[in-house]
Amino acid sequence: MESGNIAWMLVASALVLLMTLPALILFYAGMVQAKNVLSIFVQCYVVACLMSVLWYVVGYSIAYGGANPYWGGLSKVFLLDVTRESVVGELPEILFFVFQMTFAIVTPVIIIGAFAERVKFGFVIVFSGLWMLMVYAPVAHWVWGGGFLSDGGIFGALGTKDFAGGIVVHQTAGITGLILAIVIGPRLVTHHGGHSPVMTLAGAGLLWVGWYGFNGGSQLQADANAAMAVFLTHIAAATATLTWIGWEILKTGRFTVIGMVTGSIAGLAAITPASGYVGPLYAVMIGAVAAIIAQEAVGLIKSKLRIDDALDVFAVHGVAGMFGSMMLAPLGAATWTSQLGGMAIVGGYTLVVTIFIIFFCKGLVGMRVTKEEEEQGLDLSSHHQPAYSEN
């Protein structure tokens, strides 16, 4: 164990948790109607708590419990064989567990944005728990835990590369969000513009800061590559923000605050899988292109396909994350076969298992609130309390 690495990873773990509590909550809450703000806070907060417990009970074991190509097994349930002396690389294993737990927390919370303002609280909780255990944890094992997509697996010595979550986090969350939006159907009101752009802007800023830990921490060491990953994270986000603004002005003559920060998140998602493998010029290119394709994806999904992915989970996280993952092949960090093959396998698995979980949960607890409850707002109908008091 090395004290400098331990100190950095403690900070990185806190930064990644910050991405959920409160960054992503604020980012999402500002884009919904005022009558649904509290529901976003409660859904994200409770899901974060549930993922923490499930990761401790069995999720970590499924992802990192052993060398089986397809799942980690049950050897680390309840961390029964993890002591203060257990190590992963130069880290205490309990710290590695905590860092990976923050990823397992944020990924299901990202999905909540796709079905905001219209889903039962019980469905959110049951679906999120099952999805983390059945989709996120196995995929994390395949790519990061020594599974069949990693180096030495089915694609040979150079396996599917994903430095910090372009495939494991953003692709799985994006595809899942799109499926949920299609199955659940559109909101009664879809073009309200959000009740507080200021709240969304604050959340985006906190997400940006937290992403330093997300990408920089994925090096698992306090070294030059971690420092480079932090810089690439920043420059890709800055480039994507400016590109989004310019592209929006080019098309409409103006830009919006929500669009601006959406561009930032697209750049952050796109550089995530590549931040440990490329240099600054490539990061600038990835951020710029990601902003354009994510902006076009938003328009395609909402305006052309009429899919109410409420907070653009697929366009921003899915499309941008998959673009960044794919770019590792032409930039020399991976092969086309390993990247496209791995993405196809993860995408197909996510699609099939997510559909199964959706309909299982729908039969178990129901899925969508009633028309009257949606019109009243989930703050009152689900949680019996408004976000804002008139007093």
Results as ranks from 00 to 15, higher is better:
residue 343 M to C: 06
residue 316 V to A: 10
residue 52 S to Q: 12
residue 41 F to S: 00
residue 66 G to E: 02
residue 342 G to Y: 01
residue 276 G to M: 12
residue 264 S to D: 11
residue 207 L to F: 09
residue 274 A to M: 10
residue 58 V to S: 13
residue 130 L to A: 14
residue 230 V to R: 04
residue 230 V to A: 09
residue 280 P to L: 11
residue 10 L to W: 14
residue 235 I to E: 11
residue 382 S to C: 12
residue 316 V to M: 12
residue 182 I to Q: 04
residue 375 E to A: 14
residue 360 F to A: 13
residue 340 L to K: 00
residue 172 T to H: 11
residue 327 M to S: 08
residue 248 E to D: 12
residue 129 G to V: 04
residue 38 L to G: 06
residue 251 K to D: 11
residue 354 T to A: 05
residue 353 V to H: 01
residue 271 I to E: 07
residue 302 K to C: 06
residue 122 G to N: 14
residue 280 P to N: 09
residue 334 A to N: 10
residue 112 I to C: 13
residue 353 V to Q: 02
residue 280 P to S: 13
residue 100 Q to D: 09
residue 242 L to V: 13
residue 354 T to C: 08
residue 71 W to N: 02
residue 391 N to A: 14
residue 146 G to Y: 01
residue 102 T to W: 08
residue 308 D to C: 09
residue 252 T to H: 14
residue 238 A to N: 01
residue 143 V to N: 00
residue 226 A to W: 09
residue 186 P to E: 08
residue 347 G to Y: 08
residue 282 Y to T: 15
residue 135 V to C: 05
residue 296 E to H: 11
residue 358 I to R: 02
residue 112 I to N: 03
residue 75 S to I: 00
residue 33 Q to F: 00
residue 109 V to P: 06
residue 373 E to D: 14
residue 12 A to D: 12
residue 241 T to I: 13
residue 82 V to H: 06
residue 120 K to Q: 11
residue 260 M to H: 00
residue 336 W to S: 00
residue 188 L to M: 15
residue 81 D to N: 14
residue 275 S to K: 06
residue 191 H to S: 15
residue 220 L to K: 01
residue 111 I to S: 05
residue 70 Y to L: 15
residue 246 G to I: 06
residue 61 S to D: 07
residue 207 L to P: 02
residue 252 T to I: 05
residue 49 C to W: 08
residue 129 G to Q: 02
residue 312 D to P: 12
residue 289 V to P: 11
residue 345 I to L: 06
residue 166 G to P: 09
residue 217 G to L: 10
residue 296 E to M: 14
residue 203 G to S: 04
residue 141 H to Q: 01
residue 168 V to N: 01
residue 213 G to N: 05
